[in-house]
Design a protein around this nucleic acid. Sequence first.
DNA 1: TCGGGCAGGATTGCGCACAATCCAGTGCGC
DNA 2: GCGCACTGGATTGTGCGCAATCCTGCCCGA
Lengths: 242, 242
Amino acid sequence: MRQGAGRLVGVVTPATRPKAEDAEGVHAHLFQAIVDQRLPPGAKLTEQSLVETFDIGRRAIGDALRRLVWERLAVAPPNRGVFVAAPDAEEARAIFAARRAIEAGTTEAVARRGDPKQADALAANLAEEARLRKAGRVREAIGLSGGFHTLVARLSGNPILEEQVRLLVARTSLVVALYEDRNGLACWHDDHAELVALIRARRHRAAAGLMQRHLSELELGLRLDRPPTEGLDIRLMLARQG
Amino acid sequence: MRQGAGRLVGVVTPATRPKAEDAEGVHAHLFQAIVDQRLPPGAKLTEQSLVETFDIGRRAIGDALRRLVWERLAVAPPNRGVFVAAPDAEEARAIFAARRAIEAGTTEAVARRGDPKQADALAANLAEEARLRKAGRVREAIGLSGGFHTLVARLSGNPILEEQVRLLVARTSLVVALYEDRNGLACWHDDHAELVALIRARRHRAAAGLMQRHLSELELGLRLDRPPTEGLDIRLMLARQG
DNA sequence: TCGGGCAGGATTGCGCACAATCCAGTGCGC
DNA sequence: GCGCACTGGATTGTGCGCAATCCTGCCCGA
């Protein structure tokens, strides 16, 4: 099978081909590739290249792409292919504002309950993230960091808010890829640990407030006031794939 | 053209046929029909019937239906047709909890700003709703009531939260259709008016708190502790359409 | 009369091939 | 040399017809 443009990881061989048999599977794969930044903002996703990558029909591929568009993780100018979304600064700010509203709610709900087992699960997530950072596996650590937020949402027991946080975390990956200032991410691991302590102590207002400040700090650590990181221009991206 | 099952309003004639030319148009129509309860929970939506209703191809119909499924407004058991969602009590509670979290945020944002023009827009919405109730146009009044919440979200300036509220209001229509206790809806018009006053006064904490209590009262006014309203069982619905 | 199995109807899935749309690049004229 | 117009390539849209799946209803046997 001829390798198409838009491959997800290196050279696709039968052994390394992403496995997906339907629209949902393809969607899950593409979603995860966006979250862990294997697919950066602006990356082009054409039906033909994905047909070759996953070895399934255009119909399922099209459905998976349409769902990414619906989730605002991709854009689809007519008859031009689908592109991984590249949020502008205004959209980035909207994402963080939405997260502050939603995650104040999820964090407060978890902290009201103050279930020790739930705090343990969050602490375990943090320990694993620290281990990955120490081992130099930064990309996986970043994935777990986003996973901390979705874990809080899951533990809140509200599937609607959990799904929302999951989507907003994915969109944040795109924002970070575009606007990251490498010096701005150092402090937030400590925030997570403090948050777990507040959850254990059932200090629900303090926990909600810390989560909101945490997200504000993450936002402030991004360079939203200048154009996106060079090298992620769609044209350059397309040239690379050509 | 032969009338199919699942028609949206009465008999479909060329003059009354819902106009939609693509998947987005069909989706918008079906979405609105769900919001204003012309399509109740459990209603069956088959591709064939919608092809006949809208006079467009199965492809666009299928895309519109899939989007409703992603939005949790419909469910699609394999090869059985698509059905308007019928939230159970647990899901209903999750919807209200999500709304309390999200709409506390949108209401607080609007109240922080306290823009008189925005307060005027909200007051105008309330006046129109009162006029419709007085004229006996209850269904349209209910539509505007949900519209009040989406208007608050729109005025907050966050398109992400606005879209979320729009979807949750639609899902609330389904919940109300299933669990409505007619005595439980009398008080909430007054809440809206008081909310507008708090927004004018820039009392953002009070406004957010009132919105949350308002939604809790609406939830308490529903009979979530007993099976859904008789007559909306899917099987009875199917019999009616057959 | 009741229960189990099978067949057919209802419905969506999907491959194929052609249509439609968009725009980049090239060629020509000024 | 530059600007405009056109064409062809890239890409998705979509109709058609058949495949696949699911379940209800009917028939037959005990």
